[in-house]
Structure formats: C-alpha cells, structure tokens
Design a protein around this nucleic acid. Structure first.
Lengths: 259, 259
DNA sequence: CGGCTCTTTCCGTTGAATGGAATTTGAAGC
DNA sequence: GCTTCAAATTCCATTCAACGGAAAGAGCCG
C-alpha cells in the first residue's frame, strides 16, 4: 500500500488521533491510542511524534501520550466561546453570589447542550456538568431552553429524530415541553444526573434576538423557588445579551450536517 | 512540484494553520490565514475545508475561519492542566474570598509562565493576565517562583540566555532574584503590566516535591501586606500539592528543546 | 457595467505518506 | 540472571494523496 491504504486523508487521521482521547484521560499508551483511532501502529507512531514535535501532544516516558500544553494554550487563548464567556462571566458571578447556586452557561451544538462555563455553589465540591461537558437537549434544562428558541426548521429537524417507532411517545412530550419553554421564557427539568436537583435555564439572546446560549442554575429540590430564580436568571441573561451586542460572536450552530 | 514543494509535512501545515490565529481573534479571512501560516492559498483552502469538516475549524459566511467548538471541547474536556486546575480551584476560591484579590495559577512552559487559571478580585473588571496568557519568567512573580525552584540544570540553561553582551547586567540581577525567591519561599515583583500593582507568587509542589505550578496574587501597591499574603498563599499552595498527590499530573515542562 | 479582490474548482505531476516486517526496548515472570 | 512477551521504534520499497498554478466563479464598490 501507499498513501493511505484506507480512504482517509492525513487530516482525517490527525483528527481521529485527537478525538481518540477518552474524556478526562490524563494519558494513553501509544498502542491503545492507535487502536482507538483505528490506525496502524506505525502510522499512529509517526503522526504522534510529529504532533509532539510541535507541542500539540506530549510524550511521557514509556510511550504514554497526552494532549499538549501548547494545544491547550492555542485553543483557550482563542476559543470561539471567548467572547461569550467574557460577556457572561460577571453576570454569572452575580447570580452565584445572589442565589448561591451552581450556575452554568451552555451553547447548542448539534442535538446537545455544550457547557462552556460554570460556577459552583459556594462550598460545594460536587463537580457535575463539567466545563466542556455535553448533555442531550432533552435531558437538560439548558438544552430545552436552547432548542425552544431555535428557528422552526431546526426544531423540526430535531424532532424528526424521535419519529422512530419506540420513541413515538417522546416526540409528543418533547414538542409540548419545548412549546411550554418557549411560552414561559424558561425551561425546567427534574434533575437527570441527581434525582434531588432541579434545573432551570433561560435563553440568552444577542442583539439580533437570536438565541446563542442558555444560562441556567441547578438547585436542590427543596430550595426550588421559581418566583425568585427565573426573574434573576432572565435579568442576567438580558445583561449578557447586551454585552454581547457589539462583539461579533455569532456562535453559528452546526445544525443538521451531523446525521 | 508535488507533495509539499517546501520541506514540510501535512502535519506541520495543519499545526501552522492553527497557530496562525492571532491571540484573541474571533475570525480570520482565508487569504489572511494562508498568509500568516505561510501556505499557498490553494493548500490552505483545502486543509481548512478538511478541518472544518471535522468541526475543528468553523467556516463563517464569506470565507471567514475560526477555531471550532468541537476543538475547544476536545481540548478542554481533556486538558493536561485539568487535574491541576481541579486540585487548585477550591483553594484558589478560598484565597479569593479571604484576601479579595486577583488570584492566578501558572505553570512553566519554556521560559514563560503560562497562566492556566485565574479568579478576579470581586467587582473588578480589569482583565489582565488572561487565562492561557503568557509572561516571560523574568517579568512575572509566577515565573520567578517557578524558575526559582527548578533543578539547577534548568536554571543554568535559562540564565545562559542572558549571557549576551547587552544583557550582561540582567543575568546577575536575575540570579539574585531567583536565589532570593528560593530562600524566602516566595517571589515578588513590582507590577510590570500596571505600575501600581505588585505580584506575589509561591511554588506549588507535588507529592515528590517537584514544583509543578505557581500560585500568585496581584495586589494594588497600597494594599500590599506581605505578612498577611505570603502565609495564606503558602498554606493554599500546600493544600493544592496535597490534593495533587495521587492524580498523576506530572506537568512535565518542556525544557530546552526550544532553542 | 467593468474592474478588483477573494474564494473555489480543476487537474496533471510527483515525492511524502504509508504500513508490513524486522529490530529494539523494557518490564514481568521464572 | 535468563526467558518471555508486549510494547515501542526503525527501516524501506511502493504508490496514491497532497500539491499548487491556472482558470473560473462570487461579491463588492465606484
């Protein structure tokens, strides 16, 4: 064989290599990495060495590989969420101080809510819904808040997913959940991660009224007081939207290419 | 011509492309990106499209390119600094609450301090020393604290840089600064960014006593009270080191390959 | 509308990427 | 200390994916 026995380009392989790291893993053995990326050991070895040469990966002793500090730096000094996070941070801190609850900020990516920032309840150690974590739209209040305010075409495409026989029921439920969230201006959902918590989220709109993010809190069931939470969140969300106004964030969602 | 007219591999080019984004830029024109990366327009175009296909880059309307959400996700859910930041976060919050000052956490990368986390003074808006920002070792208290506790070989290599005629003076100054920092157990430096602020940083050591990070604060000159700050920082730094104990962070610094 | 700039497609050329085989390294077991 | 086994690493002949100049398309502005 020669250039790529299978039908994928070098770029494809590099991407697969980076994607092959399982969530939260510190380091991987080269052979395991090759395996996970579906690459011949030799090829993986060559690519890893090249990437490590640029600092995007780092080689530990004994063939262990992990993401490089340089890559972290490049992405984080320039992340697509930077403007959003900068706009949101002060207001998220306000929420955290006033309500003393876990606060989070998510954007829509495909059919998931992707959490881009979070602040923990003071004193809490629990670390659910980590930064850079995902939750399916229908399993998170943030996801529902985001989807409820998407253009009709996106919602339709989303709901089409659930047209499968077994899920028939779900589609109806979801549709009304979304409608309700759209009407009320917030989404709520009994905690899926933890049965004793409740999630509430509101949409964050930019100057052009497009929903670019969701601002949410996770509260213990017994401390749940919608009357207090929702207005606070909505006020903060508007504040974020305003600060977002000038900077050209856009946060274009990748919509249905994924299928 | 054929495969790579110049002498660089596909991987090299992809890396150059990602590195070509200037700090904090939202989006770049394709042609400008090609220019900055030193790639023929056609080649840049092809690579960008491939990367965008995987979500590592995103294409805006009109040929604008920026880093993709997917890349941000992959790197941040799995960053090499994750363990360090998780260990440090609660104690950084303590410092922030107790002292009410800007707190930051840095690691050594080459001859720079790379800031991996920061908390702002309550109510402050100033956003200096951003996350993923760099400061040369000799211009930051964090850098000095880190370098002061590196093995002798690393320090020697570092100081060798300043052996150039013009910098002759500096080498001596630096050497004594480092020695002092090592003796005292903390480093201080009059604000370089802002003339009215002062930086103080202490080393964070892991279970094997290796200095893996620096914990620092930036305080207004008039609020400078070493007696109060240093012990608080040192206590927190020890706490971080302890929490780091089991998780295998290592944070191997890339030392002198850079020259 | 014509001139300009930037993006995108086309396509023949060719050397960089490839991966099986062989070798080395290193850790665990006897 | 010696053997075994699994891993990383080096070697190298083969060949197709990457390359990039040229040309075509897309916007934009005066």
């Amino acid at each position: 064989m020669a250039n790529s026995g299978s039908g994928d380009s070098v770029v494809d392989r590099v991407v697969r290599l980076i994607e092959a790291f399982p969530e939260g893993s510190a380091a991987l053995q080269l052979s395991e990495l090759a395996d996970r990326a579906g690459l011949p050991l030799t090829t993986a070895h060559r690519l890893v060495r090249q990437l490590a040469g640029h600092g995007l990966l780092e080689l530990g002793s004994g063939g262990s590989v992990r993401l490089g500090l340089r890559l972290w730096e490049l992405v984080n000094r320039n992340s697509p969420t930077l403007a959003l996070r900068q706009a949101a941070m002060p207001l998220m801190e306000d929420i955290q101080q006033v309500l003393n609850q876990n606060v989070n900020l998510a954007v829509l990516d495909g059919w998931d809510a992707l959490f881009v920032e979070r602040l923990s309840r003071r004193g809490s150690v629990a670390n659910r819904a980590k930064v850079a974590g995902r939750m399916p739209v229908h399993l998170s209040s943030a996801g529902l808040a985001l989807m409820a305010h998407q253009p009709a075409s996106v919602q339709a495409a989303y709901l089409r997913q659930f047209k499968d026989p077994a899920d028939r029921l779900r589609a109806g439920d979801l549709r009304s959940l979304l409608a309700e969230a759209a009407d009320e201006g917030y989404a709520q959902l009994a905690g899926v991660v933890d049965p004793d918590t409740w999630g509430i989220a509101v949409p964050v709109r930019d100057a052009r009224k497009r929903t670019v993010a969701a601002l949410g809190v996770v509260v213990p069931l017994r401390e749940m007081r919608l009357q207090a939470l929702v207005p606070a969140l909505q006020t903060a969300a508007r504040g974020i939207g305003r600060r977002l106004g000038d900077s050209r964030t856009a946060a274009e969602f990748r919509s249905m290419e994924d299928l």
